[in-house]
Write a protein that binds this DNA or RNA. Structure first.
Lengths: 156, 156
DNA sequence: ACAATGTCGACCAATTAAGTGAACAAATGT
DNA sequence: ACATTTGTTCACTTAATTGGTCGACATTGT
């Protein structure tokens, strides 16, 4: 068997969002659905959304440090949304967990680095294409809030 | 020093295109500029576009197997575009080297996999957002050909 | 024959993704 | 005071990918 032999294996693709980002979005949608109520425990979210609990702990912790979630220790403790669901956009979630939404550093706002190829970024055609892609992605994610994720969704 | 100590290190971000994809686009733009002429040698491209030569060999080989490039062995050999620059879109390049342009498997055409979370993909709100992102990315990359990359560009 | 060129397969180092585990800290009910 | 529940932190693991490099081989023109 060669080293590149795959048996029913799934190739992980680079552009695909990490599971961390997806878990974060799913967990936040759940917390948005219960916005204004009692804190929800990690175990609850892990079970109902099918997210590995220990992994989810890390993710919720990051979201708390980001200022999106609050937590309460002890019995009846748990996590809850600090901001209103309409005030949390997918843009900030994806950007935090992926670092940037751009496909090239030279069109990133958050992780900009000068291009290694082109002499002049202002006229570079490749850059212009991926700037367009970034800008439309930005607009779509910016206008999508947690609230718009939970409209007309069943309670669970 | 802890294991996670970074000194002036650059974090590699997942959504960023791989260097392979970028090198492929740059090399193809170069070959498009010289479309209809003699084959161009790997070394030439590597030097003028500043791409590691051994790495570029792999990339050009892949593009040949894809049917975009042709090659000629022996003295005066090299690579050349098989298709017209206007007939090669960035979409097929990115898709080949990244596997897909989608950010989630459930909205990918080339690498579709059912969603692990939602009960109904047709109504899933998260999916809808990333389907929008994919579709606009698709349109932009589809309409961008090698020809549009080299218009008004200096010869070297 | 020989030199220039592409072809192919194997190999490598560094990094990341996706978790797991264990010990600790804080709040609460009794 | 104490046990229990819950969150917090840091270190660790395993498998895979990225970004190359290397050496031998095949083909072509002169």
């Amino acid at each position: 068997m060669g080293k590149n032999t795959y048996i029913c294996a799934i190739k992980v693709l680079k552009l695909i969002l990490s599971k961390k980002t997806k878990y974060a979005m799913v967990a936040l949608a759940r917390l948005a659905r219960d916005y204004g109520r009692e804190p929800i425990q990690i175990r609850d979210i892990a079970e109902s959304e099918k997210i590995p609990q220990r992994f989810l702990e890390n993710i919720l912790l990051e979201l708390r440090k980001l200022g999106i979630l609050g937590s309460k220790l002890g019995k009846e403790g748990g996590y809850f949304l600090l901001k209103k669901p309409s005030e949390v956009s997918l843009l900030e979630i994806v950007r935090h967990f992926e670092g940037t939404i751009a496909l090239m550093y030279c069109v990133s706002e958050k992780a900009y680095q000068p291009c290694e190829f082109c002499k002049d970024e202002a006229t570079c055609r490749i850059r212009k294409v991926f700037k367009d892609v970034r800008d439309t992605t930005y607009e779509i994610l910016k206008r999508t809030s947690l609230e718009s994720l939970i409209q007309d969704q069943p309670r669970s």
